[in-house]
């Protein structure tokens, strides 16, 4: 099995997922997404302990321009949320891939993760979109 640790993958809806440690997926939005949204002013995060289904919206990000639902690349239980974003949502604008992460979920399987878009594939996807 391929080691997916530290690998980042993207969804067509512009979220990213990264397996920062074994069995834990960190979720955020891409640099392109924050650029399209513009200044972010409110973020709603899921509750710790809740179960997130990859098919359903898990968080909301609202900019001056528009509100947008956030989807997770995989399903799992929320084990940590980035509370800093509640008071400083602009962190997502300044550091979407690092300090601006949304939440972490415990995943039981990495099935489907590898087939999501890699950084390079996502860049091509954005150019074509």
């Amino acid at each position: 099995m391929t080691d997916l640790t530290k690998e980042i993958r993207y969804l067509p809806t512009h979220e990213w997922g990264r397996i920062d440690e074994d069995g834990v997926l960190t979720v955020g939005i891409s640099d392109q997404a924050q650029g399209l949204l513009g200044d972010i002013v409110f973020i709603e995060l899921p509750e710790i302990g809740s179960y997130i289904d990859a098919e359903e919206e898990s968080a909301i990000v609202e900019s001056v321009k528009a509100a947008s639902d956030i989807y997770a690349p995989l399903s799992g239980e929320v084990i940590e949320i980035n509370e800093k974003l509640l008071d400083e949502p602009e962190t997502v604008n300044t550091s979407p891939l690092q300090e601006g992460w949304f939440y972490k979920i415990r995943i039981t399987s990495t099935e489907g993760f590898e087939s999501l878009m890699t950084e390079e594939e996502y860049q091509i996807f954005c150019e074509e979109e």
């Binding site: 002013v41 409110f42 709603e44 609202e62 001056v64 509100a67």
Partner: peptide, 10 residues
């Protein structure tokens, strides 16, 4: 209209 919620009216 002034709102004390974390959402924007559109």
């Amino acid at each position: 209209i002034l709102l004390n919620e974390r959402t924007i009216l559109r």
